[in-house]
Design a protein around this nucleic acid. Structure first.
Length: 809
RNA sequence: GCGCGGAUGGCGGAACCGGUAGACGCGCGGGACUUAGGAUCCCGUGGGGCAACCCGUCCGAGUUCGACUCUCGGUCCGCGCACCA
C-alpha cells in the first residue's frame, strides 16, 4: 500500500481504511454532540438545505450531491467561526407517498416511518454537519400541530378563504391540484390530463402580496434566473377593466380585462372563456342547448391552442364608447380563470384575435397605424386612427386617454392584473394534516381552538381516495361529527387535508424552535435565526416552494410572528446530476444511482470529494464513477504525507507562500461555491508537500495542519482523524480557519511571456513587481528575441508587469 | 415563438480585470518496484512537424499591441416560459 524510496525504513503510517473512519467519527461526533448548534451563539449563521422527500426510492446520488454541497458551505462557515445552524428533516406527507402506499398496499404511516428511517441513515452516512436535535418530520403531530396553527393564523387574518371555484382536478390522483402542479395541462405527479371541477376549496390569498413579493425580489441575493422565474410567475400586467352592457341574455354586463385599452375602438367582438363558470348567463336562451353540445365536444387537451374553435353565443355587447353592437362568442383560446375570463377581441392588433376573426369571418378594423391589418395583426405602437376623438394620438398616450373616457362614464377603470393566483391548499386525500376547521350550520367555518391542536389524522385502514370530491376522512363518522366550538351545535369537521407545500412552506421557521411544544415559533430564537442566511436547493422549486415560503413568511411577518418579510437572504440552486445522457436522475427514467455502495467501498469522504470535484456546484453535470478512484488516491496520499510531516521549521519563504496561496484559493473557491477548483488547490498543496518529503527536505507540520483544515469541509472524517494524529486538541471542525496574508499568497518570482507581434517567442523569470521598463530591457535581451528583431528596434512595446511583454515590429 | 444559460484535448473541467489556453482529475503511453499487478511511485500526454515553427477555445466578421474573455451576425445544445389578452 505504501511505497518507500529504496533503502529507507518503512514509514510509521498504517493502512488507510476510509469506511472505518466514517463509522468511527460519526459515532464520536454524535457522542460529543459536535454539530449541536449554540442557539444563543453570537454569530448565528443559518445554513439551510431543502429537506428531502423520503420516498421509497431511497436517497440517490443526486441527493448526495445536493446535500454535500450545502454541507461544505456550512462546514466552511463553522470553521470560520460562525455559529452555524444546519438542520435537516423530512417532508414526508403528500400524494406521492400516498400513491406509492396505495400501489404496494401498505399503510402510508408505516411506510413513511420506514422510509424516513432509511433516509436518515443514508444522510448520516454522508457525514453531514447537521444538528439532528432539531430534526423535523412533517408527519409528526408535534410538527403538523403547528402547520395547523399556521393555517389558523392565516384564517383569522382573512388570508385563508373557503370558496367555490373552478379547480384543477386530476382524475388519476382524484384530487384538486394547485395551478403550479399542472404542467402543460397534465398532472405534474402522474401525467394525467387535468380536468376542471367546481368545488368549495380552501384558498390562501397569495395574490394579496403579489406586488410586494414582486418588489421585494430586487432586494434578494438570489440568482437572476430564479428571480426571473418568480417574476414571470407573478406575471404583473397593467391595463384596464372595461364593462360592456349585454343584450339578449340574463346578465346585463360583462367586464373584460385588456392591456391595450388604446385599441378599444378596434374591438369588433367579445370572447368569453369556454371554461367560464357563468357561461350560460352570458348566452342567449335560444343558444344554450347548442352551447352545451359544443362544450361537450371540446377536447380536454389544452397543450396546443386552436384559434379557430369558437361558438357565437347569440348575445350582443354594447361598445361603451361608440354604442355599436358587437357579437359575443365563447372560445377555448380565452381562459375562463384569468382576469375576468372574458376579453374584447381586437383582431387588427392581436394575433390570436386576428386568427379567430379570420376563421369566423368577423370584421378586422385598423385603429393603430403602422402595419397592414389585412395581412397580419399589428401589435406595435403608432398613431391612433378610426378612433373618434383620439385620432392622431400616439397609442402609448391613448391608453390613459381611453381609461379617462371610460372612468368619466363609469364603464371602465385602470387595473393591474397578476397571473399569480390564490393557492388552493385543499386536497381530497388522506395523507396530509387535516385542515383545522369545523363547519357549523350557524357559524360557517370555525377554526379549531388552538388549545385543541393538533387535529390528529385518524388512523384509517381504507385510505383510498373516493373520487367524489370528498376526502376519505369523510367516512370516519366518529371523527367528523363534533360540536361547534362556538355554539355547541352538531357540526362537521373539514375533511380535506392540506397540500404538502404548506408543510414545506414554513419548516425552516420551525427548525430553531423544535424544542418548544407550547409554541410554534419561539420569539427569541426566531428573531435571532431568521431569516435564513444561505438556502441551497434544486431549481425545480424556483416557483412552487419558494413562492409559498415567501408568502407564508410575509403573512406571518405581518402578523408579528417573524422578524422580516423575506425568508431567504441568499438562495442558490445547485446543478443537477444527470446520468447516462438520460437527463435528470429520477426513478421513472430508470437511472437512479445509489450512493450506498460507493460509500461502503470508498468511504463518504472520497465520494463527497469526487462529487464536489465533478464540476461547478451550481452547474451540475453528468454522473459517472470513472474518476472516483482519483479522489481515493488523493486521500491516500494525504493520509501518508500528512503523517510524515514532522518539521517544525516555519522559515522557508517559498513554502509559506505556497501555504498562503492554498488558503486564499480554497477560501475564495468555497465562497463562490466553485468547489471543484478548491479541490484542485488541495491537490496542488498535497503534491507540494509530497515533493518536500521526496526531496529529503522534510515536510512541515504547519503545512500538514493547513492541508487538513482546508480539506475538512470536503472530507470531514479523514480530516478529523489526521487532526487527532497530528496531536491537535479538539475537533478540526471547530478549530479556527487558518489565516492568510494576501501579499504572501502571491508568487515571489513570476514568469514573463515575451511576444513578438502577439506571438509567444520566449519566456523569462523575474521578481514579482518588476517595472515595465526593466521587463522591456530583459525581454530585448532574450537571445531568441534579439534574433527575431535582428537589430531593428520594435515599433511599439507593451509591458504588463508580472504578465507579458509584447514587442510590435 | 420569447427569455436565460452554455459550447474549450479522448473525457469531466480550469483560466483574476483582455495578457504564456488546457490548472486539477480521469483515461492513455512509457518506466520503476514486483512471483504477479487492475496496487503504488516516477516521467510524458491538444494536433501537425526532424526542427525553426504552424494550427487550435462552435462558425463567420470586427475592436485591440494582444481575444476562450469584448462587439455584431449565425449554428447547435440545455433550461424556463409559452392562448394570461
Amino acid at each position: 500500500m505504501v511505497s518507500n524510496p529504496p533503502g529507507t525504513a518503512p514509514p510509521p503510517v498504517d493502512r488507510l481504511d476510509l469506511p472505518a473512519l466514517d463509522a468511527k467519527w460519526q459515532r464520536i461526533w454524535e457522542e460529543r454532540q459536535l454539530y449541536r448548534t449554540d442557539m444563543g451563539g453570537r454569530r448565528p449563521f443559518y445554513c439551510l438545505m431543502m429537506f428531502p422527500y423520503p420516498s421509497a426510492e431511497r436517497l440517490h446520488i443526486g441527493n448526495a450531491y445536493a446535500f454535500t454541497g450545502a454541507d461544505v458551505y456550512g462546514r466552511y462557515r463553522r470553521q470560520r467561526g460562525d455559529d452555524v445552524f444546519e438542520p435537516l428533516g423530512f417532508d414526508a406527507f403528500g400524494i406521492h407517498s400516498e400513491n406509492y402506499a396505495l400501489r404496494v398496499g401498505e399503510h402510508p404511516a408505516t411506510l413513511t416511518a420506514r422510509n424516513v428511517k432509511h433516509f436518515r441513515g443514508q444522510l448520516r452516512g454522508l457525514g453531514l454537519g447537521v444538528d439532528w436535535s432539531h430534526e423535523i418530520d412533517t408527519t409528526d403531530p408535534a410538527y403538523y400541530r403547528w402547520t395547523q396553527w399556521v393555517f389558523l393564523q392565516l384564517f383569522k387574518a382573512g388570508l385563508a378563504e373557503h370558496r367555490e371555484g373552478p379547480v384543477n382536478w386530476c382524475p388519476s390522483c382524484l384530487t384538486v391540484l394547485a395551478d403550479e402542479q399542472v404542467v402543460g395541462g397534465a398532472c405534474e405527479r402522474c401525467g394525467s390530463v387535468v380536468g376542471t371541477r367546481h368545488l368549495k376549496q380552501w384558498f390562501l390569498r397569495t395574490t394579496r402580496y403579489a406586488q410586494e413579493m414582486l418588489d421585494a425580489l430586487g432586494t434578494l441575493d438570489w440568482s437572476e434566473r430564479t428571480k426571473l422565474a418568480q417574476r414571470n410567475w407573478i406575471g404583473r400586467s397593467e391595463g384596464a377593466l372595461i364593462d360592456f352592457r349585454l343584450r339578449g341574455c340574463d346578465r346585463d354586463t360583462v367586464t373584460v380585462f385588456t392591456t391595450r385599452p388604446d385599441t378599444l375602438y378596434g374591438a369588433t367582438f367579445l370572447v368569453i372563456g369556454a371554461d367560464h363558470p357563468q357561461l350560460a348567463g352570458l348566452t342567449a336562451p335560444g343558444r344554450r342547448a347548442a352551447l352545451e353540445e359544443w362544450r361537450r365536444g371540446l377536447v380536454g387537451d389544452l397543450s396546443e391552442p386552436d384559434f379557430s374553435v369558437g361558438i357565437d353565443l347569440g348575445t350582443r355587447a354594447v361598445h361603451p364608447l361608440t354604442g355599436a353592437e358587437l357579437p359575443v362568442w365563447a372560445a377555448p383560446y380565452v381562459l375562463g380563470g384569468y382576469g375576468t375570463g372574458a376579453i374584447m377581441a381586437v383582431p387588427g392588433h392581436d394575433e390570436r384575435d386576428w386568427s379567430f376573426a379570420r376563421s369566423h369571418g368577423l370584421p378586422v378594423v385598423e385603429v393603430i397605424a403602422g402595419g397592414d391589418v389585412d395581412a397580419a395583426a399589428w401589435t406595435g405602437e403608432g398613431p391612433m386612427v378610426s378612433s373618434g376623438p383620439l385620432d392622431g394620438v400616439p397609442s402609448e398616450d391613448g391608453r390613459r386617454r381611453v381609461i379617462s373616457m371610460l372612468e368619466a362614464t363609469g364603464t371602465g377603470r385602470a387595473h393591474v392584473q397578476y397571473r399569480l393566483r390564490d393557492w388552493i391548499i385543499s386536497r381530497q386525500r388522506y395523507w396530509g394534516p387535516p385542515i383545522p376547521i369545523i363547519h357549523c350550520p350557524s357559524h360557517g367555518p370555525v377554526g379549531v381552538p388552538e388549545d385543541q391542536l393538533p387535529v390528529r389524522l385518524p388512523q384509517v385502514e381504507d385510505f383510498r381516495p373516493l373520487g367524489t370530491g370528498v376526502s376519505p376522512l369523510a367516512q370516519v363518522e366518529e371523527w367528523v361529527n363534533v360540536p361547534c366550538p362556538l355554539c355547541g351545535e352538531p357540526s362537521r369537521r373539514e375533511t380535506d387535508v392540506s397540500d404538502n407545500f404548506l408543510d414545506s412552506g414554513w419548516y425552516f421557521m420551525r427548525y430553531p424552535s423544535t424544542g418548544f411544544s407550547d409554541r410554534a415559533l419561539d420569539r427569541e430564537l426566531t428573531w435571532r435565526w431568521l431569516p435564513v442566511d444561505m438556502y441551497i436547493g434544486g431549481h425545480e422549486h424556483a416557483v412552487l416552494h419558494l413562492m409559498y415560503a415567501r408568502f407564508l413568511m410575509r403573512a406571518l411577518h405581518q402578523l408579528g410572528h417573524v422578524p422580516e418579510p423575506e425568508p431567504f437572504r441568499r438562495f442558490r440552486a445547485h446543478g443537477l446530476l444527470s446520468f447516462g445522457g438520460r437527463g435528470k436522475m429520477s426513478k421513472s427514467k430508470g437511472n437512479v444511482v445509489s450512493p450506498d455502495e460507493y460509500m461502503a467501498r470508498h468511504g463518504a469522504d472520497a465520494l463527497r470529494l469526487y462529487l464536489m470535484f465533478l464540476g461547478p456546484y451550481l452547474e451540475g453535470g453528468e454522473w459517472n464513477d470513472h474518476g472516483l478512484r482519483g479522489q481515493s488516491r488523493f486521500l491516500e496520499r494525504v493520509w501518508r504525507c500528512v503523517q510524515l510531516c514532522a518539521s517544525d521549521d516555519v522559515a522557508g519563504e517559498a513554502r509559506e507562500r505556497r501555504r498562503h496561496r492554498a488558503i486564499a484559493r480554497v477560501q475564495r473557491s468555497i465562497e463562490e461555491l466553485h468547489y471543484n477548483t478548491a479541490i484542485s488547490a488541495l491537490h496542488e498543496l498535497q503534491r507540494g508537500i509530497d515533493d518536500d518529503l521526496g526531496s529529503g527536505a522534510g515536510g512541515r507540520r504547519i503545512d500538514a495542519l493547513t492541508l487538513v483544515q482546508l480539506l475538512a469541509p470536503f472530507a470531514p472524517h479523514i480530516a478529523e482523524e489526521l487532526w487527532e494524529r497530528l496531536g491537535q486538541r479538539g475537533s478540526v471542525h471547530r478549530a479556527p480557519w487558518p489565516e492568510h496574508l494576501p501579499e504572501l499568497a502571491a508568487e515571489a518570482r513570476v514568469t514573463i511571456a515575451v511576444q513578438v507581434n502577439g506571438r509567444l517567442r520566449a519566456t523569462f523569470e523575474c521578481d514579482a513587481g518588476t517595472p515595465g521598463e526593466e521587463l522591456e530591457r530583459l525581454a530585448l535581451a532574450q537571445p531568441r528575441v534579439a534574433e527575431l528583431l535582428d537589430g531593428a528596434p520594435p515599433r511599439k512595446v507593451v509591458a504588463v508587469p508580472d504578465r507579458v511583454v509584447n514587442l510590435v515590429v
